[in-house]
């Protein structure tokens, strides 16, 4: 069958592609949207976030340890939810929001710029990351600094997860929280900005001080960076899993097994 054909594709979603290109952005939107809903629910819950020595990663670091029991920072507006999770989550949430991988994911899934490769966006304006608010994506490295700081406190909480009332011990929960933190650390260390700061901005490693060490660091982070998407997803799921684990233990629905 022959027929006249325009060279430019039509409106939104127009494509010559035959595969189910919409599945990937749809799944991404569903899962990412689901995580946002879950994280907000968990933060507003403001209870059952600890069980024995375990602390949910959404509530780590333990602000009661840092600020004192029952102390709430003064100066916060009255509308600010009185949940420690909201004092913590801005950093990892902002880090993921400005992450180079997640940007790809949600630009495709939520803003459809583009919905998929070779699929029309329709006749819509586009300014990329040149104007407010998306120009703020350039502050990703500052959220990296905040998350690196947070990781230090969170690993301290991981260590506390092995300290039971009768001394050192290992429970399934200890391993769940430690595993989650390992995955979060892997995600952070595979960050594009960290890779740049560690050595990416160096053109000639043999010309600078500590060049060989920086080159090795850069190569190591680059190897991790190759799997940044994988780190992003598994760490996200692990946070939900760890929070659910602590919640179910705290509610008495699940019994934590002591291994040592």
């Amino acid at each position: 069958m022959n027929g006249s054909t325009p060279l430019a594709a039509g409106g939104f979603g127009a494509t010559q592609r035959r595969d189910a290109w919409w599945i990937e952005p749809a799944i991404t939107a569903f899962v990412l949207g689901g995580f946002v809903v879950y994280a907000n629910w968990a933060a507003f819950r403001n209870r059952d976030f600890s069980f024995g020595p375990y602390l949910s990663p959404l509530y780590s670091p333990n602000l009661e340890h840092l600020l004192g029991p029952g102390v709430w920072p003064s100066g916060l507006p009255s509308w600010f939810p009185r949940s420690p999770a909201f004092l913590i989550m801005w950093a990892p949430a902002g880090f993921r929001l400005t992450c180079y991988y997640y940007r790809k994911a949600y630009y495709r899934s939520f803003t459809a710029h583009p919905p998929a490769c070779g699929v029309s966006e329709g006749n819509r304006g586009y300014r990329g990351e040149t104007a407010f608010p998306l120009v703020l994506q350039n502050l990703h490295r500052y959220l990296l600094y905040a998350v690196l700081l947070l990781l230090g406190f969170q690993w301290y909480d991981v260590a506390l997860g092995f300290r039971f009332e009768d001394g050192f011990g290992v429970g399934v929960g200890s391993l769940v929280i430690a595993g989650t933190m390992a995955l979060l650390t892997g995600y952070t260390l595979s960050c594009h900005s960290l890779r740049h700061l560690a050595g990416g901005k160096v053109d000639c490693f043999s010309c600078v001080r500590f060049g060989e060490a920086r080159r090795r660091l850069f190569l190591g982070l680059s190897r991790m960076n190759e799997h940044h998407m994988l780190w992003a997803w598994v760490s996200l799921f692990s946070v939900i899993f760890a929070d659910l684990y602590v919640l179910l233990c705290a509610k008495g629905i699940w019994t934590d097994l002591r291994l040592l």
Partner: peptide
């Protein structure tokens, strides 16, 4: 700044250059 790193360029590169990363 107009590039929003959606990685289609990397996906189609026949030389497997990791263009975006």
């Amino acid at each position: 700044g107009l590039c929003n790193i959606t990685k289609c360029c990397t996906e189609v590169c026949p030389e497997s250059i990791r263009i975006t990363d």
